[in-house]
């Protein structure tokens, strides 16, 4: 394509400067997490400095860098507890949540976007409204439903159901927004050619909505990946805990082992980053323009 840049030929240097400044803002607190994780110690201290320090003292003190590098926190996280197993559980639960959540959201969002039916507005609104419920006293009713009614206590399926359904409203709204922007002419012509609704959905709409699906997938995955209290409440076996549950062992009650927590947090962030890297190409592929032409 000869189009060139979308926002014109803006000089790149100032853009890089802005981005780099924000990179510092983004990374600074995270570097402290790394510092704590690699320090080999357990404290959650930021700056260590005398009261009337010089400018250089202060500058050195606010640099997030461990005094001594040590991997001991990382090795302890994995050797003292079955953390690898918990990470695996998290991957299983989060992946299944993503698949189920995106599937449920796609079908519903497609119906909301393409069909006109009574109750459509009410249904869509109810998804939005559901997000407004404060979760203050939800644990006990959820426990009754999941464990007592459905018998899904200590079962990944229970967690997967909760997580994927909690994520649905956002996913449906996102996807419906994107589906709305996809021109209907494509589907109409396919319909003329005798394709079924399902075919149209899988062959035409879904590929075009890849960026949206990527966003919702990332969101679903995150929902499942970071949740702690339900996973800890519904799982009754050690080898069924997820990674956030494992992490919280380090810092509950009187024990405050932030070194372990930071190390574990860094490890649990890696799959998210990997997933994002994988989804990136869908977020930036510039689909619609190409597809309409092709």
């Amino acid at each position: 394509m000869s189009v060139g840049s979308r926002t014109g030929d803006f000089p790149h240097l100032p853009l890089h400067v802005i981005l780099l400044i924000y990179v510092v803002v983004t990374l600074y607190p995270l570097l402290w997490v790394f510092t704590i994780g690699f320090s080999g110690q357990q404290g959650l201290m930021i700056v260590d400095i005398p009261a009337n320090a010089t400018f250089l003292d202060r500058l050195r003190a606010i640099m997030p860098w461990p005094a001594h590098f040590s991997f001991s926190n990382f090795t302890s996280v994995f050797t003292e507890q079955p953390f690898a197993r918990w990470l695996l559980n998290s991957v299983i639960v989060a992946t299944a949540t993503t698949i189920l959540g995106v599937f449920l959201a796609c079908t519903a969002a497609y119906a909301f976007s393409r069909f006109r039916f009574p109750g459509r507005r009410a249904g869509l609104m109810s998804f939005l409204v559901s997000q407004m419920f404060p979760g203050t006293l939800m644990l006990i009713p959820l426990y009754i439903i999941i464990v007592q009614w459905l018998g899904l206590g200590s079962n990944f399926i229970g967690l997967i159901l909760i997580y994927s359904i909690t994520g649905i409203p956002f996913c449906v709204w996102m996807l419906k927004g994107y589906f709305d922007t996809i021109p209907r002419e494509l589907e109409e012509s396919a319909l003329m050619d005798g394709a079924s609704t399902a075919t149209i959905f899988y062959r035409i709409v879904l590929p075009l909505a890849k960026p949206a699906v990527a966003v919702t997938a990332l969101f679903s995955f995150m929902t499942a990946w970071n949740e702690f209290i339900q996973a800890a409440t519904f799982m009754d076996k050690v080898n069924m805990y997820t990674a956030p549950v494992g992490l919280r062992f380090f810092v509950g009650g009187f024990s405050q082992q932030w070194g372990y927590f930071a190390a574990g947090a860094i490890v649990t962030a890696i799959p998210i980053v990997a997933l994002f890297l994988f989804l990136q190409k869908y977020l930036v592929s510039g689909l619609t323009a190409g597809a309409v032409k092709g």
Partner: peptide
């Protein structure tokens, strides 16, 4: 900014910028 065509290092910026989301907010 990240949508600027031809900007160097866009994938790296993007990954760096999502990091706060990836780290548990508890810490």
């Amino acid at each position: 900014i990240l949508n600027t065509k031809g900007l160097l290092g866009r994938p790296y910026y993007r990954v760096l910028f999502i990091l706060p989301w990836a780290m548990p907010n508890y810490i």
